[in-house]
Amino acid sequence: MAENYAATHRIVLVTGASNGIGAEAARLFVERGHTVFGTSRNPDTVAVKVPGVTYLRLDNADAASIAECAAAAGDVDILVNNAGESQAGALEDTPMEAIEALFANNVFGPIALTKALLPGMRERRTGTVVMVGSMLSSFPVAFRSNYAATKSALKGFAMASRRELAPYGIRMLTVEPGTIATGIGTRRSIFIGENSPYKAEYEVLAAATRKNEAAGLDTVEMAQVIVDAALSDNPKPLYAKGNRAGLVFLARRVLPRQMILDLSAKIHGLRKISA
C-alpha cells in the first residue's frame, strides 16, 4: 500500500450524494483531485449537482440496481456507504414491512454493494470501505430503536471484517455522525399511531430532536471527517463527530451502561424510568 494514501489518485464512490453529507464528501474528494462517482435513486432529479462528480443510479433495496452501479463505477478504490433512510416511532406501531425495508436500505444494500466491489479491491490489494453510521448506535434512545439497530449492524460488519480483509490491503472503518443539520428530519419515516399510548412521549422526543437537529453540526464538518478518515494512511476502526463526541465516548467507557441510557434519554427530553 502506498505510503501516502491521500497523495495517490483514487476512484471514489459515494452513495447518497444528492445532498447533505454525501454531497459534501463528494465535493471534497473532487477538490483533492480524485475521480468521484456519486449515487442517487434518480440522478436526473438531483437539484444541485457537484461539479466533477459523475452521478450513477443506486437504489439500496434493489439488487439489480446495486449490480449495475458497481459495474458502472468499475475499479473503485474508496467506497463511502452513506445512503440510507431515517426512521422514528414506537416499535409497537411500526409494521414489520417498514422495519424490513429499513434494513434493506440501511444494511443489506450497503453490504451487497461492498461485496460487489471487494473482489476488485482484493485483487488490486488496495481499497477502503467507509460505513457511515450514527452515534445512535453507540448511544441509543427511545423511539429510534430500528434506526439504531441498522447503524449498529453496519458497525458490526465493519468491525468484524476489518481484520478479515486487512491482509489484502482493504481498510474497513465506521464514521458515526452525531446530530447533523442536514434537514433529514423532514424526510424521516415516522410510525406513531393517532391513539398510540406512546404518542405523548414520542412527541416530547420529536420536539427535542427537531431542536437538536436545527443546531446540529454543519454537513461540511462531518464530510471532512469522512474524507480525512478515508484518505488516512492508517485509519482507525471508528470515528465520531458531533454531540461532544470525545466527552461522551469517554463517559461511555467509565460510566454504567444504564446511566448512559438515562443520559441519552434526558438529552431528548425523556424522564428517567427504572426498567
Rank of each mutant, 00 (worst) to 15 (best):
S264R: 07
S274A: 15
S196I: 13
A149N: 07
A98S: 09
N60A: 11
L56V: 03
V53F: 02
K272I: 14
V76S: 01
R124P: 02
N82R: 03
P235T: 04
R32W: 00
A72S: 09
N146T: 09
E31V: 01
Y55T: 02
S86C: 05
A72E: 11
G178F: 05
T186F: 09
D75S: 14
A112M: 08
L154T: 05
A6I: 12
R244L: 12
P197F: 14
V76I: 11
V175R: 00
E97D: 10
A116L: 14
V107M: 00
I226D: 01
A116W: 06
T219W: 03
S189P: 02
M135C: 08
N234H: 14
P43C: 07
N234C: 05
L270G: 05
R163P: 05
A101S: 10
G109A: 12
L113W: 02
A101W: 04
K199N: 11
E221N: 09
N81L: 10
N81F: 07
K211W: 05
G269H: 13
N60G: 00
N105F: 00
R257D: 15
I21R: 00
F37W: 04
N195K: 14
L255V: 09
M96Q: 08
V220Q: 15
N106A: 03
A61M: 03
A240V: 11
E68M: 08
R253D: 11
L79V: 09
A61T: 10
T15G: 03
A214H: 11
L136D: 09
A112W: 02
A207P: 07
G169V: 11
G109S: 06
T8A: 14
R210Y: 09
R244M: 15
L270C: 05
A90E: 13
N195Y: 10
Q224S: 13
F249R: 13
E68D: 15
A47E: 02
S152K: 02
A142R: 15
V220S: 05
T8N: 09
A230R: 04
P256R: 12
N146Y: 13
N4H: 14
I273D: 10
M135K: 13
A112G: 08
A47M: 02
E3L: 10
M135D: 07
T179E: 02
A104E: 15
N195F: 14
T114F: 04
A83D: 05
L136R: 09
I180F: 05
R122F: 03
G109M: 01
A223H: 03
R57Y: 03
Q258W: 11
S274I: 10
I226Y: 00
A112L: 09
A17T: 00
R163Q: 13
F37V: 01
V141F: 06
K49Y: 01
H9S: 14
A160K: 13
G120C: 05
L247V: 13
L79D: 00
M121W: 07
R171M: 03
N81C: 10
D218Q: 13
A166N: 07
F191W: 15
N243P: 05
G38S: 06
A240L: 12
M1I: 13
L173W: 06
P95F: 04
E203T: 08
K236W: 09
G269K: 07
T209L: 11
G89R: 08
A215P: 01
S232F: 12
S145P: 04
A64H: 12
R125Y: 09
